[in-house]
Simulated scan of single mutants.
Amino acid sequence: MDDDHLHLRLKAYEGRPAAVAGVGRDPVNAPMIRHWCEAMGDANPAYAGPDAIAPPTMLQAWIMGGLGGPGSVHEGRARAYEELLSLLDGAGCTAVVATDCEQEYLRPLRPGDEVAFDTVIESVSSRKTTRLGTGYFVTTRTEVRVGGALVGTHRFRILKYAPAPDAATAAPVAAAAEAHRPEPARADGLRPRPVVNRDNAGFWAGVGERRFLIQRCVACATLRFPWLPGCNACGSAEWDTVEAGGRGTVFSYVVMHHPPFPAFSPPYAVGLVELAEGVRVISGVVGVPYDKVRIGMPVELEFQVFDDELTLPVFRAREGAA
């Protein structure tokens, strides 16, 4: 099937349902809100107490299908979306990566709200070539409702692609050989670049100078990370920065096992690191094998150079930590 014919078939799915009459697995509830806020380090009083609301960015959390998978009756996934993904698989676009999401909020969600949702396939791009491989961007739009009233919209975009040759030929035995490698795999020119925008440009400028800068609210002195345009404690838009000393501990972590592609070589550990200053940072944990990372492990900041254009902050286990 040539590209033009395939694209026409893919475009025919635009506007068709991806999920119909989906229902959240659980009502909006205080325990999930608490876990979310603890993981994010967000102590905003609006998210606790008898008049609590849910953090707006939890919108997707209430509609996810969970470990039951696509067949879950709660998810309501429609046949058209499965057909679209199968068509892409048949064209060799067997790999998938989430690229971005956009959310709009009409009113806060509160404990006890029962959410329902419908999702449509909003757009399918023309064939695109990326560093990961060649494929198609698929965007879905989900409308979330409570009691029939629209409360928010969630757009989610994935890239379904045919892995670049190096990724397609990565042998399982090679991944096994790397299993106890203490550093994340490095692949010049292939490591994904961070998204730099007007809200976080100052942070990345600091990284370029080998400084880890944390925002500090001028009004109430609350420290925050990641960088935000306003204070999540008092709402002030005025801020300055403090430089992190670099010491911290592993607050939580996951071990990534996704299929190998050139920029990474799984399995490897990604940590939620709590800095001495009190903020938490998601980054790679290096210096020890992935299976030796532990909650409470002391770590120290370092800046890892991947190529001439990319330097990233990572956290190295302090000597004797393993």
Results as ranks from 00 to 15, higher is better:
residue 59 L to T: 11
residue 149 A to Y: 09
residue 179 A to C: 10
residue 83 E to P: 12
residue 106 L to A: 04
residue 120 V to T: 04
residue 178 E to H: 15
residue 88 L to T: 11
residue 132 L to S: 00
residue 176 A to D: 02
residue 166 D to G: 12
residue 139 T to N: 03
residue 150 L to A: 04
residue 54 A to S: 11
residue 147 G to H: 02
residue 162 A to N: 01
residue 101 C to F: 13
residue 88 L to S: 10
residue 114 E to Q: 12
residue 104 E to Q: 14
residue 116 A to V: 04
residue 159 L to Q: 00
residue 65 G to H: 15
residue 77 R to K: 15
residue 77 R to G: 15
residue 177 A to V: 08
residue 154 H to Q: 05
residue 76 G to F: 05
residue 129 T to V: 11
residue 115 V to H: 10
residue 177 A to Q: 08
residue 104 E to H: 13
residue 140 T to E: 00
residue 128 K to V: 13
residue 135 G to F: 01
residue 141 R to G: 14
residue 103 Q to E: 09
residue 130 T to A: 09
residue 165 P to L: 08
residue 106 L to N: 04
residue 157 R to T: 10
residue 145 R to W: 01
residue 118 D to Q: 06
residue 142 T to K: 05
residue 71 G to K: 05
residue 162 A to D: 03
residue 106 L to H: 06
residue 174 A to N: 07
residue 164 A to C: 07
residue 90 G to N: 03
residue 168 A to W: 03
residue 106 L to Q: 03
residue 139 T to Y: 09
residue 174 A to S: 01
residue 179 A to W: 14
residue 58 M to A: 01
residue 77 R to H: 15
residue 74 H to M: 13
residue 168 A to M: 03
residue 61 A to M: 05
residue 120 V to Y: 07
residue 146 V to K: 09
residue 139 T to G: 07
residue 151 V to S: 07
residue 174 A to I: 03
residue 81 Y to D: 07
residue 138 V to N: 02
residue 162 A to W: 02
residue 55 P to S: 05
residue 74 H to V: 12
residue 68 G to L: 09
residue 153 T to K: 13
residue 74 H to W: 12
residue 55 P to Y: 07
residue 101 C to Q: 09
residue 138 V to T: 06
residue 138 V to F: 08
residue 133 G to N: 03
residue 122 E to H: 15
residue 180 H to C: 15
residue 98 A to H: 14
residue 63 I to C: 10
residue 69 G to L: 03
residue 127 R to A: 09
residue 76 G to W: 12
residue 94 T to M: 12
residue 105 Y to Q: 10
residue 101 C to M: 08
residue 184 P to Y: 08
residue 130 T to D: 10
residue 104 E to C: 14
residue 141 R to T: 14
residue 132 L to A: 01
residue 92 G to K: 02
residue 86 S to H: 13
residue 109 L to S: 13
residue 78 A to C: 01
residue 94 T to N: 10
residue 82 E to Y: 12
residue 113 D to G: 15
residue 51 D to W: 15
residue 184 P to H: 09
residue 87 L to H: 01
residue 71 G to I: 04
residue 86 S to Y: 13
residue 62 W to V: 01
residue 181 R to W: 07
residue 87 L to D: 04
residue 90 G to D: 05
residue 95 A to V: 00
residue 55 P to Q: 08
residue 69 G to H: 01
residue 178 E to L: 15
residue 144 V to M: 06
residue 84 L to Q: 07
residue 82 E to F: 12
residue 153 T to D: 10
residue 171 A to I: 05
residue 171 A to G: 04
residue 57 T to P: 02
residue 149 A to E: 14
residue 65 G to V: 13
residue 143 E to I: 11
residue 61 A to T: 08
residue 56 P to K: 08
residue 67 L to E: 14
residue 74 H to P: 11
residue 125 S to G: 00
residue 144 V to D: 00
residue 150 L to M: 05
residue 54 A to P: 11
residue 173 V to I: 13
residue 160 K to Q: 01
residue 63 I to N: 02
residue 151 V to R: 04
residue 183 E to Y: 13
residue 82 E to L: 10
residue 130 T to F: 12
residue 70 P to H: 11
residue 93 C to M: 01
residue 93 C to A: 02
residue 167 A to C: 03
residue 107 R to S: 07
